[in-house]
Amino acid sequence: MRITQGCFSFLPDLTDEQIRDQIEYILSREWAVGIEWTFEPHPRNTYWEMWGHPMFDLKDAKGVMMELADCRKAHGDAYIRINAFDSSRGWETVMMSFIVNRPAQEPSFRTWRQEVDGRAMRYTHEMVGGMPG
């Protein structure tokens, strides 16, 4: 199944040119750019692995594209996302996040239901497939 996290998952996968355009936008807002990757795209898996520190003070998208190429080379079968961070007071958070790499075979999630008091239910989502051997 196609996991639809990030702000462009309903579009066809972005080309490198389209990714570069979004990075230019991020840099024009003076946000820092971070690359993160994971084999476990569970909706509650907050902390993907950082591909180095977020890149601060960048002027050119080229630097990010080179890092992305290296990350893809190392983790081509992982999910990779690009995050933009705004350090200005009152935000100080991720302002944008989008997936730029997906495994050929995406995992899915199984819902476990546990019947508890009354008719209430406890739900747990377990990832199925996707983890590298």
Binding site: M1, H42, S108, T111
Partner: peptide
């Protein structure tokens, strides 16, 4: 809500 979370991978 939970079923939709499972089939999309989104909160």
């Amino acid at each position: 809500v939970n079923k939709a979370t499972a089939v999309t991978g989104e909160v």
